[in-house]
Write a protein that binds this DNA or RNA. Structure first.
Lengths: 106, 106
DNA sequence: TTGACACATTCCGTTATAGGAATATGATTG
DNA sequence: CAATCATATTCCTATAACGGAATGTGTCAA
């Protein structure tokens, strides 16, 4: 069995760094595809393909107007990630001490 | 070019649900491999392989004692995920309104 | 209509995955 | 030493990813 599809959930979709870049860029407000291409310096087909994945998991919404497509980040779908990582917040302090210990051991 | 390796960073390592389960289980305190096997009901080789990935990205630490290996979550490495998702915290409220609008449109 | 434009979708090739089964390694016990 | 226990590491196979290049689809403008 191969790895789970990138479109299977937000965790998998967001594993790709460029897709995170896109989400960052689209968070403040919607943008046309070409704006993303220019802003990130990626080939247009690559951007379209990444947007497709993000769309499939609901991480972005699209609004079509004429020949342009305006995408925006749907931050709500990032929330599961945030919630999961938050569980570990309480362990950070303790972990820092261990890191120190481990460093001293080496 | 294939997908980035699961061992390339925490984002990729954590995309696999079972690995998240393991991290959850190992967060409160260290556990021997067999405890994980029993707790999650996964085949032992599968657990060992997941642990290998988590170890490679520093998401878990190991302590060997006799024939047992005790693993514990290194929550510090989850922090980049938390930090990234936190950027979108301020957009959640606004996004909720849009979800509502989209639902009504259908 | 014919272009030109904005974007989306092929097709291709290389590579790493997760699972299952089997086996290897290393430590402990008798 | 031999047997057993706790983990780790093969091998194997099917699948899907990403990048690049090319092509497709739909819209607007002259």
């Amino acid at each position: 069995m191969p790895r789970a599809a990138t479109t299977s959930d937000a965790f998998n979709a967001v594993a790709e760094p460029r897709r995170r870049d896109i989400l960052d860029y689209l968070a403040p407000h919607e943008r046309a595809v070409n704006d993303i291409v220019l802003a990130l310096g990626l080939p247009q087909p690559s951007v379209s393909k990444h947007l497709r994945v993000l769309r499939d998991v609901g991480l972005v919404d699209v609004r079509r107007h004429g020949r342009q497509s305006f995408y925006r980040t749907n931050a709500d779908q990032i929330r599961p990630l945030h919630d999961w990582t938050s569980r570990f917040e309480r362990y950070w302090r303790g972990q820092l001490a261990r890191v120190k210990t481990r460093a001293e051991r080496n």
